[in-house]
Every structure is written in C-alpha cells, then in structure tokens.
Computed example of a mutant assay.
Amino acid sequence: MSDEQARGPGGGRLVTVLAWMLLLFGLWLWGRGVTGVRPSTDGPATGDVFARGHPADPALLPRPAKPLGDAPPQRVDIPRLGVQAPVVARGLDARGAVDPPPYDQPGVVGWYGAGPAPGAAGAALLVGHVDTETRPAVFYRLSSMGPGERVRVVRADGRVAEFTVDDVRVLPRDGFDARQAYGVREPGRAELRLITCGGSFDRADRSYTANVVVSAYLTGTVR
C-alpha cells in the first residue's frame, strides 16, 4: 500500500479496524489469563466465584448521566463490599494482553490506561485479583454483586464518578468472547467493567475457568 493510499479515507478506516482487532485480541488473551493466581500446592482461597449472571430490569435502573472528560482514576469504592482500593494504570504485557496488578499487591486495582477513563464515553476496564496463595484479594466478593448496586470512582480531576451496576456475567475462558465482555453495551454511555477470576479452580492448569465481569454505567457525578 502506498503512502497516498494509506492516507485516503479507506486507509484510515483500515488502520482503525486493524487497531481494534489487535486490542480485542489482547483482551481475549487478558480474559484467558490476566486475573489467574499463582497458587501454592494447597491451592488458594476461593471467593464467591460461582455466581450466575444476574439479569437487569432496565425500567428499575436510573437514567445514564452525560459522560465526563478524560481524567485518570485514583480510587475505586464499592460500598456494599467494603472495597476502597487504589487504582494504577496498566499497559500491555509481552503477549499483547493487559498487564494486571502485581501479585504482591492484592489490594490494588489495575486500569487499562490506553482505554477510556472511568466516567468518559466508552467502556473503562478495571481488573483485580480474586485471591492470593493465602488470602482473599480486592475483588474476592465481586461475583456477589447485582443490578442496582453502586460503584464510585475517584478521579484525578476531583470528581467522583458514580456508576450503577446493570449486569453481572460469568464468562468461561474456553471460547472467551472479548467483545461481549468488554465492548460498549450502549453507544454514547460512560460504562465501567470490573473483572476478576470466576468459575472453578483448575489445579492442572493452575488457573480459574472463567471470568466474572460486572458491567455498570455512569449515573451521577459529585465533586
């Protein structure tokens, strides 16, 4: 392809499509392994990771709020779970998958910094471990959440983005669908995904068999 062709309308669309395909591939790899623990021979503690998906009734949920601008997240609060966790930006690892928080920081949540910020238009991605070799981690009880529950994200611009959960899914890693898990549910909304391990623990593979994906959307902002 010549430089002139690449700069044309079709070339621009091609670059966008290729970039999206590469991101989805990285997220597919992420779904297969990013939140897996490295267990001891006794196996890690297991949280409430057998939850089924909880359907939402849109009529009972609040209306979406107008998306905010970009500002990095600093902390995520989940009141019912007693979670108040610092958030750090993470990139991609050598395989092209999102790099999770280090295993020695089980109370830290990772934000995919190349994607939307929580509160901005699009789907912002936050990932945390479910457990360590010896104890529960930050998203240990994530799968117990349901529609209507609240998540708050403190941003660097001084605003607190308030999200309402509208869906909870447990997605098997075999045949993992990155678009279903991480794609925007409704265009124009500011959405949030909270992701951790789920399903059962496969001792042979030394990882969990599924991912818990909590979907939420922006419903308010406070300063």
Rank of each mutant, 00 (worst) to 15 (best):
E4V: 03
G10E: 14
G11N: 02
R13T: 02
V17L: 14
W20L: 12
L22H: 03
L22D: 11
L24I: 01
W28Q: 13
L29A: 08
V34G: 15
G36F: 06
G43H: 04
A45E: 13
D48E: 14
V49C: 12
F50H: 14
A56G: 15
L60T: 15
P64Q: 11
L68V: 02
L68C: 03
G69D: 14
G69L: 05
D70S: 12
P72M: 08
I78N: 05
R80M: 13
L81Q: 06
V83N: 03
Q84L: 09
Q84I: 08
V87G: 06
V88M: 11
V88N: 05
A89K: 11
L92H: 01
L92R: 02
D93G: 07
R95E: 10
R95K: 08
A97R: 07
V98D: 06
P100R: 09
P101F: 00
P102Q: 11
V108A: 03
V108S: 02
Y112H: 10
G115S: 06
P116D: 13
A123L: 00
L125P: 12
G128N: 08
T132E: 08
A137S: 04
V138K: 09
Y140A: 11
S143E: 14
G146D: 13
P147W: 03
G148A: 09
R150V: 12
R152E: 15
V153C: 06
R155H: 08
A156Q: 14
D157H: 10
D157T: 05
V160S: 13
F163R: 04
V165L: 10
R169E: 15
P172D: 09
P172Q: 06
F176A: 01
D177M: 00
Q180W: 09
G183I: 07
R193G: 08
I195F: 04
F201Q: 12
D202N: 09
R203I: 01
Y208V: 01
N211F: 02
N211T: 00
V213M: 07
T219Y: 01
T221C: 05
T221N: 10
R223M: 01
